[in-house]
Protein backbone atom coordinates (compact mmCIF):
# COMPACT_ATOMS: atom_id res chain seq x y z
CA UNK A 1 0.00 0.00 0.00
CA UNK A 2 1.25 3.46 -0.78
CA UNK A 3 0.67 6.60 1.24
CA UNK A 4 1.68 9.81 -0.45
CA UNK A 5 4.81 9.11 -2.38
CA UNK A 6 6.50 6.70 0.00
CA UNK A 7 5.86 3.07 0.68
CA UNK A 8 3.97 2.69 3.93
CA UNK A 9 5.91 1.82 7.02
CA UNK A 10 4.59 -0.62 9.54
CA UNK A 11 3.68 2.21 11.91
CA UNK A 12 1.68 3.96 9.27
CA UNK A 13 -0.22 0.80 8.45
CA UNK A 14 -1.12 0.23 12.07
CA UNK A 15 -2.27 3.83 12.44
CA UNK A 16 -4.29 3.56 9.24
CA UNK A 17 -5.95 0.37 10.47
CA UNK A 18 -6.72 1.98 13.82
CA UNK A 19 -8.38 4.98 12.17
CA UNK A 20 -10.35 2.69 9.90
CA UNK A 21 -11.56 0.52 12.78
CA UNK A 22 -12.60 3.48 14.90
CA UNK A 23 -14.42 5.10 11.99
CA UNK A 24 -16.25 1.94 11.09
CA UNK A 25 -17.24 1.48 14.75
CA UNK A 26 -18.78 4.92 14.79
CA UNK A 27 -20.50 4.36 11.46
CA UNK A 28 -21.81 0.95 12.48
CA UNK A 29 -23.23 2.39 15.68
CA UNK A 30 -24.92 5.12 13.68
CA UNK A 31 -26.27 2.64 11.16
CA UNK A 32 -27.64 0.37 13.88
CA UNK A 33 -29.32 3.31 15.60
CA UNK A 34 -30.88 4.66 12.44
CA UNK A 35 -31.78 1.13 11.34
CA UNK A 36 -33.55 0.39 14.63
CA UNK A 37 -35.45 3.68 14.48
CA UNK A 38 -36.46 3.13 10.88
CA UNK A 39 -37.45 -0.48 11.59
CA UNK A 40 -39.81 0.44 14.42
CA UNK A 41 -40.80 3.92 13.30
CA UNK A 42 -41.25 3.57 9.54
CA UNK A 43 -44.75 2.18 9.96
CA UNK A 44 -45.68 5.42 11.65
CA UNK A 45 -44.83 7.58 8.68
CA UNK A 46 -48.33 8.24 7.52
CA UNK A 47 -50.52 11.29 7.31
CA UNK A 48 -52.63 10.32 10.31
CA UNK A 49 -49.54 10.34 12.50
CA UNK A 50 -48.16 13.48 10.93
CA UNK A 51 -51.39 15.45 11.19
CA UNK A 52 -52.74 13.91 14.40
CA UNK A 53 -52.88 15.31 17.91
CA UNK A 54 -51.48 13.63 21.02
CA UNK A 55 -53.64 10.97 22.59
CA UNK A 56 -53.51 8.44 25.40
CA UNK A 57 -54.24 5.82 22.77
CA UNK A 58 -51.02 5.08 20.94
CA UNK A 59 -52.63 4.27 17.61
CA UNK A 60 -54.54 7.55 17.54
CA UNK A 61 -51.69 9.74 18.71
CA UNK A 62 -50.07 12.12 16.26
CA UNK A 63 -47.37 14.73 16.31
CA UNK A 64 -48.71 17.79 14.53
CA UNK A 65 -48.39 20.22 17.49
CA UNK A 66 -44.89 18.92 18.28
CA UNK A 67 -43.77 19.06 14.65
CA UNK A 68 -45.00 22.61 14.17
CA UNK A 69 -43.60 23.58 17.57
CA UNK A 70 -40.17 22.33 16.52
CA UNK A 71 -40.41 24.01 13.12
CA UNK A 72 -41.40 27.37 14.64
CA UNK A 73 -38.65 27.15 17.22
CA UNK A 74 -36.03 26.43 14.56
CA UNK A 75 -37.22 29.27 12.39
CA UNK A 76 -37.25 31.77 15.27
CA UNK A 77 -33.89 30.59 16.57
CA UNK A 78 -32.36 31.06 13.12
CA UNK A 79 -33.87 34.53 12.81
CA UNK A 80 -32.59 35.57 16.24
CA UNK A 81 -29.24 33.85 16.65
CA UNK A 82 -27.68 34.04 13.18
CA UNK A 83 -27.77 37.85 12.76
CA UNK A 84 -26.65 38.45 16.33
CA UNK A 85 -23.98 35.77 16.06
CA UNK A 86 -22.58 37.06 12.77
CA UNK A 87 -22.52 40.67 13.92
CA UNK A 88 -20.75 39.71 17.14
CA UNK A 89 -18.24 37.69 15.17
CA UNK A 90 -17.59 40.65 12.87
CA UNK A 91 -17.09 42.87 15.87
CA UNK A 92 -14.63 40.39 17.35
CA UNK A 93 -12.62 39.92 14.19
CA UNK A 94 -12.80 43.26 12.45
CA UNK A 95 -13.21 45.90 15.14
CA UNK A 96 -12.02 44.63 18.49
CA UNK A 97 -8.33 45.26 19.04
CA UNK A 98 -6.09 42.59 20.44
CA UNK A 99 -5.70 43.13 24.14
CA UNK A 100 -6.92 42.03 27.55
CA UNK A 101 -10.58 42.81 26.77
CA UNK A 102 -10.60 40.68 23.67
CA UNK A 103 -8.81 37.92 25.52
CA UNK A 104 -11.33 37.99 28.34
CA UNK A 105 -14.32 38.02 25.99
CA UNK A 106 -12.71 35.21 24.03
CA UNK A 107 -12.35 33.00 27.07
CA UNK A 108 -15.90 33.80 28.13
CA UNK A 109 -17.25 32.92 24.73
CA UNK A 110 -15.50 29.57 24.60
CA UNK A 111 -16.66 28.74 28.11
CA UNK A 112 -20.23 29.64 27.22
CA UNK A 113 -20.13 27.22 24.29
CA UNK A 114 -19.44 24.42 26.76
CA UNK A 115 -22.07 25.26 29.37
CA UNK A 116 -24.59 22.40 29.77
CA UNK A 117 -27.89 23.12 28.07
CA UNK A 118 -29.91 22.73 31.27
CA UNK A 119 -28.18 25.82 32.66
CA UNK A 120 -29.52 27.81 29.72
CA UNK A 121 -32.93 26.41 30.56
CA UNK A 122 -32.67 27.88 34.06
CA UNK A 123 -31.46 31.22 32.71
CA UNK A 124 -34.30 31.27 30.21
CA UNK A 125 -36.84 30.47 32.91
CA UNK A 126 -35.63 33.32 35.08
CA UNK A 127 -35.02 35.94 32.41
CA UNK A 128 -37.47 35.32 29.60
CA UNK A 129 -40.33 33.55 31.37
CA UNK A 130 -40.31 35.44 34.66
CA UNK A 131 -38.46 38.78 34.32
CA UNK A 132 -39.58 39.63 30.79
CA UNK A 133 -42.88 37.94 31.55
CA UNK A 134 -43.07 36.15 28.22
CA UNK A 135 -44.66 33.15 29.89
CA UNK A 136 -43.98 29.59 28.78
CA UNK A 137 -44.31 30.65 25.19
CA UNK A 138 -42.70 29.76 21.89
CA UNK A 139 -40.93 33.09 22.01
CA UNK A 140 -39.38 32.38 25.42
CA UNK A 141 -38.34 28.91 24.21
CA UNK A 142 -36.80 30.23 21.00
CA UNK A 143 -34.90 32.98 22.82
CA UNK A 144 -33.51 30.45 25.30
CA UNK A 145 -32.36 28.11 22.54
CA UNK A 146 -30.92 31.09 20.67
CA UNK A 147 -28.88 31.93 23.75
CA UNK A 148 -27.74 28.33 23.88
CA UNK A 149 -26.41 28.17 20.33
CA UNK A 150 -25.22 31.76 20.08
CA UNK A 151 -21.66 31.01 21.28
CA UNK A 152 -21.41 28.21 18.71
CA UNK A 153 -22.61 30.51 15.93
CA UNK A 154 -20.16 33.23 16.99
CA UNK A 155 -17.21 30.85 17.16
CA UNK A 156 -18.02 29.28 13.78
CA UNK A 157 -18.53 32.68 12.17
CA UNK A 158 -15.27 34.02 13.57
CA UNK A 159 -13.51 31.00 12.15
CA UNK A 160 -15.08 31.66 8.74
CA UNK A 161 -14.19 35.37 8.85
CA UNK A 162 -10.60 34.54 9.68
CA UNK A 163 -10.47 32.31 6.60
CA UNK A 164 -10.93 35.31 4.33
CA UNK A 165 -7.37 35.94 3.03
CA UNK A 166 -5.78 39.12 4.35
CA UNK A 167 -4.71 39.99 0.83
CA UNK A 168 -8.38 40.44 -0.14
CA UNK A 169 -8.84 43.02 2.57
CA UNK A 170 -5.62 44.77 1.65
CA UNK A 171 -6.62 44.83 -2.01
CA UNK A 172 -9.91 46.40 -1.01
CA UNK A 173 -8.21 49.07 1.10
CA UNK A 174 -5.68 49.68 -1.69
CA UNK A 175 -8.56 50.52 -3.98
CA UNK A 176 -9.73 53.11 -1.50
CA UNK A 177 -12.59 51.22 0.10
CA UNK A 178 -13.57 52.13 3.63
CA UNK A 179 -13.61 49.62 6.43
CA UNK A 180 -17.37 49.28 6.17
CA UNK A 181 -17.16 48.69 2.41
CA UNK A 182 -14.50 46.10 2.92
CA UNK A 183 -16.54 44.22 5.50
CA UNK A 184 -19.76 44.52 3.54
CA UNK A 185 -18.40 43.66 0.09
CA UNK A 186 -15.43 41.42 0.83
CA UNK A 187 -15.47 39.88 4.29
CA UNK A 188 -19.15 38.98 4.55
CA UNK A 189 -19.60 37.51 1.08
CA UNK A 190 -16.44 35.43 1.27
CA UNK A 191 -17.07 34.13 4.76
CA UNK A 192 -20.79 33.51 4.26
CA UNK A 193 -20.47 29.86 3.14
CA UNK A 194 -18.50 29.06 6.29
CA UNK A 195 -20.89 31.06 8.46
CA UNK A 196 -23.85 29.19 7.04
CA UNK A 197 -22.22 25.81 7.61
CA UNK A 198 -21.50 26.73 11.22
CA UNK A 199 -25.00 28.09 11.78
CA UNK A 200 -26.61 24.99 10.31
CA UNK A 201 -24.60 22.78 12.66
CA UNK A 202 -25.68 24.93 15.58
CA UNK A 203 -29.31 24.83 14.48
CA UNK A 204 -29.13 21.05 14.19
CA UNK A 205 -28.16 21.00 17.82
CA UNK A 206 -31.07 23.26 18.64
CA UNK A 207 -33.56 20.91 17.00
CA UNK A 208 -32.60 18.07 19.30
CA UNK A 209 -32.66 19.98 22.58
CA UNK A 210 -35.29 18.90 25.09
CA UNK A 211 -33.80 19.55 28.52
CA UNK A 212 -33.71 23.38 28.52
CA UNK A 213 -37.20 23.55 27.07
CA UNK A 214 -38.62 21.20 29.69
CA UNK A 215 -36.90 23.23 32.37
CA UNK A 216 -38.40 26.35 30.87
CA UNK A 217 -41.84 24.82 31.11
CA UNK A 218 -42.46 23.67 27.56
CA UNK A 219 -45.41 21.41 27.81
CA UNK A 220 -45.92 17.81 26.98
CA UNK A 221 -49.60 17.63 26.21
CA UNK A 222 -50.56 20.30 23.73
CA UNK A 223 -53.52 19.38 21.58
CA UNK A 224 -53.66 22.50 19.46
CA UNK A 225 -51.47 24.17 16.87
CA UNK A 226 -49.38 27.01 18.28
CA UNK A 227 -51.00 30.14 16.91
CA UNK A 228 -48.56 32.89 17.72
CA UNK A 229 -45.41 33.92 19.49
CA UNK A 230 -47.01 33.70 22.92
CA UNK A 231 -48.69 30.35 22.46
CA UNK A 232 -47.78 27.39 24.68
CA UNK A 233 -45.93 24.75 22.74
CA UNK A 234 -44.24 21.37 22.70
CA UNK A 235 -41.49 19.98 20.47
CA UNK A 236 -40.60 16.66 18.88
CA UNK A 237 -37.85 15.63 21.32
CA UNK A 238 -40.15 16.31 24.28
CA UNK A 239 -42.94 14.30 22.71
CA UNK A 240 -40.60 11.41 21.90
CA UNK A 241 -39.15 11.48 25.42
CA UNK A 242 -42.62 11.31 26.90
CA UNK A 243 -43.72 8.41 24.70
CA UNK A 244 -40.60 6.34 25.27
CA UNK A 245 -41.12 6.32 29.03
CA UNK A 246 -44.62 4.87 28.86
CA UNK A 247 -45.43 1.26 29.67
CA UNK A 248 -47.16 0.35 26.40
CA UNK A 249 -44.83 -0.87 23.62
CA UNK A 250 -47.09 0.80 21.01
CA UNK A 251 -46.00 4.17 22.38
CA UNK A 252 -42.37 3.20 21.91
CA UNK A 253 -43.17 2.81 18.22
CA UNK A 254 -44.69 6.28 18.23
CA UNK A 255 -41.50 7.58 19.82
CA UNK A 256 -39.45 5.97 17.05
CA UNK A 257 -41.77 7.59 14.50
CA UNK A 258 -41.33 10.98 16.12
CA UNK A 259 -37.55 10.57 16.15
CA UNK A 260 -37.60 9.56 12.50
CA UNK A 261 -39.51 12.70 11.62
CA UNK A 262 -37.08 14.72 13.72
CA UNK A 263 -34.23 13.27 11.66
CA UNK A 264 -36.04 14.10 8.43
CA UNK A 265 -36.63 17.67 9.66
CA UNK A 266 -32.92 17.86 10.47
CA UNK A 267 -31.98 16.64 7.00
CA UNK A 268 -34.29 19.21 5.41
CA UNK A 269 -32.73 22.05 7.40
CA UNK A 270 -29.23 20.77 6.59
CA UNK A 271 -29.86 20.40 2.87
CA UNK A 272 -31.41 23.85 2.78
CA UNK A 273 -28.17 25.15 4.25
CA UNK A 274 -26.05 23.20 1.78
CA UNK A 275 -28.13 24.50 -1.13
CA UNK A 276 -27.72 28.09 -0.01
CA UNK A 277 -24.01 27.55 0.46
CA UNK A 278 -23.54 26.02 -2.99
CA UNK A 279 -25.43 28.88 -4.55
CA UNK A 280 -23.23 31.42 -2.77
CA UNK A 281 -20.03 29.63 -3.63
CA UNK A 282 -20.98 29.52 -7.27
CA UNK A 283 -21.59 33.27 -7.22
CA UNK A 284 -18.24 33.87 -5.62
CA UNK A 285 -16.67 31.48 -8.08
CA UNK A 286 -14.96 29.58 -5.31
CA UNK A 287 -16.86 26.39 -5.78
Amino acid sequence: MRFGNKTATRRELIFYALCLIVTSFALTALLITVGAIVASGALKLNLDFLLGFPSRKAEQAGILPALLGSAYIIFLVAVVSVPIGVLSALFFEEYLRNGPIKKMLDINLKTLAGVPSIVYGLIGLQIFVRTFDLGRSILAGALTISLLILPVVVIASREAIRQVPGSFREASYALGATKFDTIWRIVIPFSLPGIITGSILALSRAIGEAAPLICLGALTYVAFIPDGLFSPFTTLPIQAFNWISRPQPEFHQNAAGAILILIILLLIVNSLGILIRLKLQKRLNLG
Binding site: R56, C215, A223, P232
Partner: peptide, 26 residues
Protein backbone atom coordinates in the same frame (compact mmCIF):
# COMPACT_ATOMS: atom_id res chain seq x y z
CA UNK B 1 -50.23 11.87 37.29
CA UNK B 2 -49.61 13.29 33.81
CA UNK B 3 -51.03 10.15 32.23
CA UNK B 4 -54.39 10.60 33.96
CA UNK B 5 -54.56 14.34 33.35
CA UNK B 6 -53.60 13.92 29.73
CA UNK B 7 -56.38 11.40 29.20
CA UNK B 8 -58.88 13.73 30.87
CA UNK B 9 -57.63 16.69 28.83
CA UNK B 10 -57.97 14.69 25.64
CA UNK B 11 -61.57 13.70 26.38
CA UNK B 12 -62.46 17.17 27.64
CA UNK B 13 -61.11 18.64 24.41
CA UNK B 14 -63.66 16.61 22.49
CA UNK B 15 -66.52 18.11 24.51
CA UNK B 16 -65.38 21.72 24.90
CA UNK B 17 -63.47 22.52 21.77
CA UNK B 18 -62.84 26.19 22.57
CA UNK B 19 -60.89 25.46 25.77
CA UNK B 20 -57.19 24.78 25.37
CA UNK B 21 -55.83 22.46 28.03
CA UNK B 22 -52.07 22.09 28.34
CA UNK B 23 -50.24 19.60 30.56
CA UNK B 24 -46.56 19.86 31.43
CA UNK B 25 -44.16 17.57 33.25
CA UNK B 26 -41.91 19.30 35.73
Amino acid sequence: VFLVSEAVAEEFGKVQKDVKVTVGIS
